[in-house]
Each structure stands twice: as structure tokens, then as C-alpha cells.
Amino acid sequence: MKQRSMSSSSPDPKSGRSSLAFDLDGTVTREEILPAIARELDLFDEMSLLTDLTLRGEISFERSFRLRFQILRNVPLARIQDITGSVRLDPDIAAFIRAEADRCFIVTGNLDLWVAPLMTVLPCRWFCSKGHLGPTGAVELGEVQLKSRAIRELRSSGSDVVAIGDSSNDVPMFEEADVGIAYGGVHEPVAALHEMADYVVYDGATLCRLLATL
């Protein structure tokens, strides 16, 4: 974590105007998106194996995402978007993002084409992995979004960045952010993230109450 100034004698002119970087899965959404897709398509075991390996740190997030992409790449895009579009969002967090869209950002490794239905519901800027339709109409994977890079970009614009997340792949985001909030609305935040956090909160409304002061 970049240390925020502890000095209280100099008023912070940016107070109340930090950029807020939200993890998507299990933070803004009430369930993880890729496992939800896999369950629908009967590919849950394959996907779980990859998720476990990633959580244990045995493969990198980027490699894991490329493999998960391979599992799902032949599924028609419309089918995936149907499933993504029906993923439940935390109502308080979603309302907050809509109300303060100018300083809210979704930071996810997920593919832009797959999560497109959620972008219309949460109209803020998104940092996603990039996909495009190939000549045969199949989705092809471009650049994988590293969460740390998104935070660096936000910080380079001069504002403090508050990162909000729940799992191991949010650790790089916390490393670059000025403030970290471990969110336990869906499940207990992973220990590594908890230990880097400035705040820990357990429900969406409470998170929004905190964010309103940051």
C-alpha cells in the first residue's frame, strides 16, 4: 500500500474525492461470474480446478485467465452474455456506483465482451481484459488486464485511489492503491488482503457509508 499521509495538520484538498476502484466478482456482484458461467455450461469442475490453483498461487492470474478463456472460448458469446447479464449485483454498491460514476471504476481481469451486459447497468469506466471477434465469429483474447496497472493509471492522474476487493487477485491492486478496503459481503476476504487493508467491512450499505467519506 502506498502510505497515505498521516499528517492531520495539513488539510487534504482531495478529501472526499478519491478515485474508487472496485473489484467486480464477489464485491460488486453477489457471486463470482466465471464459476456462474461454468456452472451453467457444465464446466464447473474444470473451472474450479483453475480457480484453486490460482488462489494457491501455483499459476499466475494471467495464465489462469488465459486457460479459463480456452475453456469458454467456443461458447457462443450471446450465451455467455445472457448468463453474465443475470448475475446479481449488490444493490447498495450498484446504486452508489451509478450515483458517483465519475469517480468509480470497475477493475476486473474478466473479458470486456463477456461482461458487456453489466457495463450498461454500471455506467462508469471499466478496466477489463480485451477480447474481439475473430474472422470465424469466435472470441479471441487480446491483452489481459493486470489490476495493478489499472491502479497505477488512476494514480497517475493525481487523485488518491481507494481499492475495494475480496480475493487474492486484488492483492496487486491493494499494493498500488493509497487506501485498501477488504470487503466481506459475499465471503470472508482472503487473509493476504485483510492484512493489507486499512478498513474491513461486511456489507454493501456499510461499504457505501465508508466510501462516502473517502
Binding site: M6, E195, V200, V201, D203, A205, T206, R209
Partner: peptide, 23 residues
């Protein structure tokens, strides 16, 4: 209660109550 904001002070061994309140 479920709606409490937890503020972490990992440096608790070396900080005062005032510093915790400041956080």
C-alpha cells in the same frame, strides 16, 4: 451488528489510543 466499519491499526504495539482514533 453487521454494519460496523473496522479500522485496522497494525502498528498497535507502537501507537497511542489517540493515533488509533485518528485512523
Amino acid at each position: 451488528r453487521a454494519d460496523v466499519i473496522f479500522v485496522r491499526n497494525p502498528a498497535y504495539r507502537h501507537t497511542t489510543t489517540l493515533q488509533s482514533l485518528h485512523l
